[in-house]
């Protein structure tokens, strides 16, 4: 066999072996409870007195200490989680933080008047699993599909993620296309005009 074909075959085999090694831990596509779709698990904690505190809307000190250990922002309030139609979900609580975005500089917005009503954003998900409570951090996609339409007044989710939340990356992509065009001019354009 020629050396190039041998090298190509060996590299394909190595990559295949690597993907088989990795395939055990990759989450399934479209799995609604995987890390990029709902949330990534942070830690577990025993559910002794904490459950009663959470039901009344008070965050217990042991939970705050553990969250502070991870280095993520501290929550300010806890509520019972609600489903898509607004029904109460058993055994799930949401913890909120205030993101401090420059949101309310203009007088009128959809969320009420300005600096008295700061925006609260749900950040942590606390789920009861048998005797322990698992604490997850919500994936960014959850904010995009629950509040994106209210925050940007655009019905199409793909457009507002591309052009608003991650607009700078789209500028980079447009610049890549522009660079490809100018490279074609640099490498291929001939002197003189096109034939008449």
């Amino acid at each position: 066999m020629k050396p190039l074909s041998a090298v190509a075959l060996i590299s394909v085999l190595i990559l295949g072996a690597l993907f088989i090694y990795v395939a055990e831990d990759i989450p399934d596509f479209g799995d609604p409870h995987s890390a990029p779709n709902r949330g990534v698990k942070l830690f577990s904690i025993d559910a002794d007195e904490i459950e009663a505190d959470l039901n009344q809307g008070v965050i217990p000190a042991s939970l705050m200490d553990k969250i502070e250990e991870t280095g993520l922002p501290l929550p300010i309030k806890v509520e019972e989680a609600r489903g898509l139609e607004g029904e109460l979900l058993e055994g799930e609580w949401d913890a909120f933080i205030i993101p401090l975005e420059k949101y309310y500089a203009l007088p009128t917005t959809r969320f009420g008047t300005a600096p008295d009503a700061p925006k609260e954003q749900k950040y942590y998900l606390i789920m009861k699993d048998g005797d322990t409570l698992d604490v997850y951090r919500y994936a960014p996609v959850v904010r995009y599909w629950e509040e994106g339409e209210h925050e940007t007044e655009v019905p199409n989710m793909v457009t507002y993620i591309l052009a608003d939340y991650r607009g700078f990356d789209t500028l980079g992509e447009a610049t890549v296309i522009f660079t490809a065009g100018v490279s074609v001019i640099l490498l291929l354009r001939r002197r003189g005009k096109m034939p008449k």
Binding site: Y21, V40, L42
Partner: peptide, 22 residues
Amino acid sequence: SVTGSLNMHDLSLLLPPLYGNR
């Protein structure tokens, strides 16, 4: 696919429990 985040500082906080993940 394992953390859901694309920010470097955020990844450094979310990855330590997952270092054994293939």
